[in-house]
Every structure is written in structure tokens, then in C-alpha cells.
Design a protein around this nucleic acid. Structure first.
Length: 114
DNA sequence: ATGGTGACTTGGC
DNA sequence: TGCCAAGCCACCA
């Protein structure tokens, strides 16, 4: 596999941070969400919240990964509600049955806990 | 080398 | 509840 910057894998064959994030991301079930920091933890990369955001921002638009199931610790979408991606994320989540209350998702109800 | 930035998080009022 | 300051860490100019 190759990373988002088109670089080849590390010579030691260790999974890159990105690959770990992709794998953890792919495991999130439909109708559930995780926070940026949680995704890092699930991928075995603590304190990687900002890095997760960076990686998601650089995903190709045609990705099949469930990028929309990642929200912030406040239970809100981190993209502006006025941006195309922000609007799409909300729509995709609602299609999966995720409910918004005043722009917020109840982590109590919808957070995925393996 | 170095300081600014950001799809973030946490603790304290 | 909500706002703020710190902490965080890869990326970039």
C-alpha cells in the first residue's frame, strides 16, 4: 500500500501510522462514530488526534473508508456546517441513523466501543 | 533551524 | 453548558 503522499512503505515493513489509522477506521460499524483521539487510540497511536485530522483531510474524495464516522470529543462535526464536506458528513451520518440535537451527536448513544 | 498552523483534547472556571 | 488556556505533534514556509 502507499500512503497519502505517494510514498512507499518503510523499509522495515512496519505499518505506517496512516495504515494503522485506515485499518481502525475501516472497522467502525455503520451508525456508530468515534472521536479523533479515540481513533488514534484504537489504531495504537496515542495522542494522535491532530494527526488523524490531518490524515482524514487528505483522503481522496473517492475513498470508500467511513471517514464521516469521525467526530470531535464535543460530539460535533469538526468541519464547518457551511462547507461541502461538512454538509456531506452530516448527511451520510443521518442516512445511517445517527441523530443530531442542536448540531450535536450523543456520544453516549452513538460512540462505538469495541 | 524555527516559528506558525490546525477535520484535536483535556482540565479549570 | 460553554469558553479558554495548555498541551500536543506532524507538516510547512
Amino acid at each position: 500500500m502507499e500512503n497519502i503522499r505517494g510514498e512507499e512503505p518503510q523499509p522495515d515493513h512496519q505499518p505506517s501510522i496512516e495504515q494503522k489509522i485506515y485499518i481502525a477506521l475501516a472497522a467502525i460499524p455503520q451508525g456508530k462514530v468515534v472521536t479523533y483521539g479515540q481513533l488514534g487510540d484504537l489504531a495504537g497511536v496515542p495522542r494522535a488526534a491532530r494527526q488523524v485530522g490531518y490524515i482524514l483531510r487528505n483522503l481522496p474524495t473517492e475513498t470508500t473508508l467511513p471517514w464521516h464516522r469521525v467526530i470531535n470529543a464535543a460530539g460535533k462535526i469538526s468541519l464547518g456546517p457551511d462547507t461541502d464536506s461538512g454538509i456531506r458528513q452530516r448527511a451520510l451520518l443521518q442516512e445511517e441513523g445517527v441523530v443530531f440535537n442542536n448540531g450535536r451527536i450523543s456520544l453516549k448513544q452513538f460512540r462505538w466501543q469495541p
